[in-house]
């Protein structure tokens, strides 16, 4: 039975995944979608989309899973996913199209929005009503509540601002409407992912971060050792990344990852505005720094004025 959904308010969430597992930020995006109060469909695109779609179908609140499985959609390049989203929108006339505010979502949502003549709203932190949202600006120093009159509300969702949707659903899988892909304009050549046994930075309960004060890549071992004792993810300030102490994808801040763990331990980090933007929603912040005037102490729940080269090994040993 094909019901005419054009008269029913409905929301499309675009799933992010790595060809085998759903990215956790999609679960946060589904929770944000559920606050809008419309039927939720999730679109899964990719070379192995049906496998991921089965995971999506079990998520509580998901009504319909649209599957676009095609070898040409491997790696989900935005140029190729856009026509699939547009074809789905044409059929179902969604009022909201949503993705997580990750590199994937940020690259895709505005591209689709341009085609729908809709101004997107980035990185929302709250849903007040179907057309009213909050987000931050100026590196998290300003919160703005906005009302959108865009024909389609195109949103990316800050993962840390919404809970992850739980399992408990039983949605039907459905093939997405047919689409036509151009494949000549972009090509995926390869990737180099940082391999780590540690918890994912964006979702870890505890994060230990190092900054310029750590002084070298070798010294970063101190940070890793402490993190491992705590079962924590590891982050870094921009200064530490720029100095080559650790890879870019560990950067926490306005231009890196935004985290909000239960416990954030900032070590040798002064606490520039741009870094605070990425971690100041953490539940408990601990700062270890030898400069008592470092701005990080103004947001820290617990401060320890100490030389990190003494304090961190001592702490690791005591755990």
């Amino acid at each position: 039975l094909q019901f005419n959904s054009s008269r029913v308010k409905s929301t499309l969430v675009i799933a992010e995944h790595d060809d085998s597992k759903l990215a956790p930020i999609t679960l946060n995006a589904i929770t944000a979608a559920s606050k809008i109060g419309a039927d939720i469909s999730v679109l899964v695109t990719g070379a192995t989309a049906s496998k991921v779609a089965e995971q999506v179908a079990k998520i509580n609140g998901v009504k319909r899973v649209l599957v676009a499985q095609d070898e040409k959609l491997k790696n989900n390049l935005p140029e190729r996913v856009t026509p699939v989203v547009l074809a789905s929108h044409k059929q179902f006339n969604f009022k909201h199209i949503i993705a997580g505010a990750s590199a994937f979502g940020r690259g895709l949502i505005p591209r689709v929005a341009a085609k729908l003549e809709s101004s997107p709203i980035s990185d929302i932190t709250a849903v007040h009503s179907p057309d009213t949202f909050s987000r931050t600006m100026y590196a998290g120093n300003v919160v703005v509540k906005v009302q959108s009159s865009a024909p389609v509300k195109m949103l990316t969702v800050r993962g840390t601002a919404f809970e992850q949707a739980k399992d408990g659903g039983a949605a039907q899988l459905e093939n997405s409407p047919s689409f036509e892909l151009k494949t000549d304009s972009s090509e995926f050549l390869g990737q180099e992912l940082s391999k780590s046994e540690r918890p994912d930075l964006a979702t870890a309960k505890i994060v230990v971060s190092g900054g310029r004060g750590v002084k070298s890549a070798d010294n970063f071992k101190l940070i890793y050792d402490l993190a491992d004792k705590l079962g924590a993810g590891v982050g870094a300030s921009r200064a530490a990344v720029d100095a080559g102490y650790c890879p870019n994808d560990m950067q926490v801040g306005q231009t890196g990852k935004i985290v909000a763990p239960e416990l954030y331990i900032a070590i040798g980090i002064s606490g520039a505005i741009q870094h605070l933007a990425g971690m100041k929603d953490s539940k408990v912040i601990v700062a270890i720094n030898k400069d008592p005037d470092a701005p990080i102490f103004q947001v820290a729940d617990i401060g320890l004025k100490a030389d990190l080269f003494n304090a961190v090994p001592e702490m690791t040993k005591a755990l």
Binding site: A103, F104, D184, S185, S186, L189, Q191, L193, N248, D249
Partner: peptide, 14 residues
């Protein structure tokens, strides 16, 4: 070469 969430990827655009 692009900075993505888990590391880097490389693409070619015409």
């Amino acid at each position: 070469t692009r900075e993505i969430d888990g590391g880097l990827d490389t693409i070619k655009v015409s």
